[in-house]
Write a protein that binds this DNA or RNA. Structure first.
Lengths: 132, 132
DNA sequence: CCGTATCCAGATGGATACTG
DNA sequence: CAGTATCCATCTGGATACGG
């Protein structure tokens, strides 16, 4: 809680932790990144998102959208017609966030195979499926 | 589980979810990103990391390091001397991962104020601290 | 010094049923 | 259509104690 004393070569100052925390608080959960990516081509309705994001429950879509709305990543617009019609759209900040996540997504595409391989090697050493 | 049929304009195919999942499985937890960032200047010992990352418990540092090792993000090297000495270092892949996360960190720095503001506005509307 | 083991509280998220 | 409410299983991570 107090200021860092001692040698400053040690890497992380509290603000460092703070920055990573901010990002993870926004997109570190199970669905946020997926929602943000699904809004890349413009506004989408609740049900469209529900169908596009495979496996998400109604509750989690609502929770995720509310959280992103609170953070100013997207806007929620109610069109008061029958039947009810609600659309979600990235804000300017939301667009910049999506762009900032792009390298990470590309990274995962580029290295997915290597990661699977590394995991297999690691697991094989610890759990060699050997008899007795 | 089966192939997507119907109109392809709907944004996310299963592989999309898969990619985001891969990334979040690696750095989506509470400490991984912090550990990766703390290894940016070269190898660090367990205790160095422990002191550098404020608030992390011994258990979580171990768990996080094991996970990153399994994914091929870092290497664990035991120097068999007295007292015991273990050092951790980013692999080539680990370095690329750190680079891929940089935009996201910069994004959080650039937009932190706007996000706080957005949250305050949102909360003020829903919880106006009004009497009855 | 560098862990592992155990226990436990709180957060996360899925299923289901109900509403304007 | 677009939610909300409730309940519950699972996961995450912190505290503590102990071991090589």
């Amino acid at each position: 809680m107090d200021a860092v004393q001692g040698d400053p070569r040690s890497a992380a100052r509290p603000s460092d932790a703070c920055r990573t925390r901010v990002v993870l608080d926004i997109v570190g959960d199970k669905w946020s990144l997926l929602v943000v990516r699904n809004l890349k081509d413009g506004p989408r309705r609740f049900t469209e998102l529900k169908r596009a994001i495979d496996g998400i429950s109604q509750r989690m879509l609502t929770v995720t959208l509310r959280s992103l709305e609170r953070d100013g990543i997207l806007t929620r617009t109610v069109h008061d017609v029958m039947p009810p019609h609600v659309s979600y759209e990235l804000t300017e900040i939301g667009v910049t966030l999506r762009e900032a996540t792009a390298p990470l997504l590309e990274w995962s595409v580029a290295h997915l195979a290597r990661i699977d391989e590394a995991r297999a090697v690691y697991d094989a050493r610890r759990d060699p499926s050997m008899t007795s």
